[in-house]
Amino acid sequence: MSVEEGQVLGVHTVEAWNEHLQKGNESNKLIVVDFTASWCGPCRFIAPFLAELAKKLPQVTFLKVDVDELKSVAQDWAVEAMPTFMLLKEGKIVDKVVGAKKDELQQTIAKHLATA
């Protein structure tokens, strides 16, 4: 297992973001992006659950994007509510979960892992 597996990776620069997307394109791996904000209570509510999921699902890449830190990315992806989870496969958005909804997030990830 590499260092990146089993945890939620914070993405702090646009370059790093593009790099992760590129990697995802090539590897056919499911990517779950958590668009979050430091001031968002619901994001703090779901953070421990997301960390658990990342531990349980090393085959999925979990990324965390702070919408204030990477404003342009959040704008490009039309993120208006926090947390927003985007599920990406081969560079395409395959699903989206808006809000801190534990069961829905888990099921949506499971659904896209099953079809992988």
Partner: peptide
């Protein structure tokens, strides 16, 4: 307890 939640730039709703 909280069952689900969402926030935006103005407020958090649980």
């Amino acid at each position: 307890t909280v069952v689900s939640a969402v926030g935006n730039h103005y407020f958090d709703a649980y």
